[in-house]
């Protein structure tokens, strides 16, 4: 029993060590020269453009549902006019970035984990390495940087679409014009609402790309490993999103909301 526990902890410590080495190798390869621009652009398209529809639909529904859920309580307090402000602040600060990141963890981290895991199983990564090419630069650097760039963009798009969802929900029961609704939303927002949210989505994006690449790149050689890598990538990336969010909230509170 004790021996099993020690083995488990040792494996965990080894895994942490490997992740640190992988991070260092990723960082070194960013500046190693010969950046793979074409692959980076392709990944931005795959990760960003191909996730837009999913993020858009989810954000729209979230905005709509939030207004429907909030309305009775806000109306009971006699603060109906505060509905756009409440939605805007909660969506921009927290719900939009986290929902987008969770959706991307499910879609992108799993796809990167499965793709690299499959390449590992089929010896494609070994083939790149023995040919003298740099698989880290081609496969890992491009994907992690693409997720770090695309997840914040998706979150911003998701925020706007979510606010449209809220507008639709408001117009089901009440009547408010689109310019007035957006004026109320934007007037309620501050720089300190927008900036920390964008900054944390960069970290969300990085975590999604890094975990996906690490799990895929270090998967074992067997078809079962591809599924394990994809599944593990989603679970770990989702967990990291909440950990980063918790840290980001603390830092933001200290810096902006004293």
């Amino acid at each position: 029993m004790a021996e099993q526990a020690i083995t488990g902890w040792r494996k965990w410590a080894e895994d942490i060590g490997e992740q640190c080495v992988f991070f260092a190798r990723f960082f070194r390869n960013i500046f190693a020269g010969g950046f793979e621009w074409s692959e980076f652009v392709r990944q931005c398209y795959e990760i960003g453009y191909r996730s837009m529809m999913l993020v858009g639909i989810t954000s729209f529904i979230m905005g709509l549902v939030l207004i429907v859920q909030l309305r009775p309580s806000i109306v009971a307090l006699g603060a109906e006019s505060m509905l756009p402000k409440t939605l805007a602040v909660s969506f921009i600060r927290e719900i939009g970035p986290v929902i987008t990141a969770i959706i991307c963890a499910g879609k992108i981290a799993s796809s990167i984990g499965a793709e690299l895991g499959s390449m590992k199983v089929n010896e494609q990564i070994d083939a790149m390495e023995v040919s003298g090419a740099n698989p880290l630069q081609y496969l890992v650097v491009t994907r992690i940087l693409a997720t770090s760039l695309m997840v914040p963009l998706l979150a911003v798009i998701g925020d706007v679409i979510g606010l449209f969802g809220g507008f639709l929900a408001l117009n089901i029961t009440d009547s408010i014009s689109l310019p007035l609704y957006f004026h109320k939303c934007i007037a309620s927002l501050d720089f300190s609402d927008f900036l920390p949210a964008v900054v944390k989505t960069i970290f969300f994006g990085f975590a999604i790309g890094f975990v996906g690449c690490y799990k895929g790149y270090h998967s074992n050689k067997g078809t079962e490993s591809v599924g394990i890598a994809a599944n593990s990538a989603v679970v770990t990336a989702s967990l990291w999103i909440f950990v980063i969010d918790a840290i980001a909230v603390q830092i933001t509170s200290l810096l902006f909301y004293k």
């Binding site: 390449m119 089929n122 010896e123 494609q124 790149m128 023995v130 040919s131």
Partner: peptide
């Protein structure tokens, strides 16, 4: 540098999908 002088044909062919 060494690997540039060695060709390695993998069992599966290892073509990039």
């Amino acid at each position: 540098q060494l690997r540039m002088k060695i060709g390695f044909l993998f069992q599966s062919g290892a073509l990039y999908d």
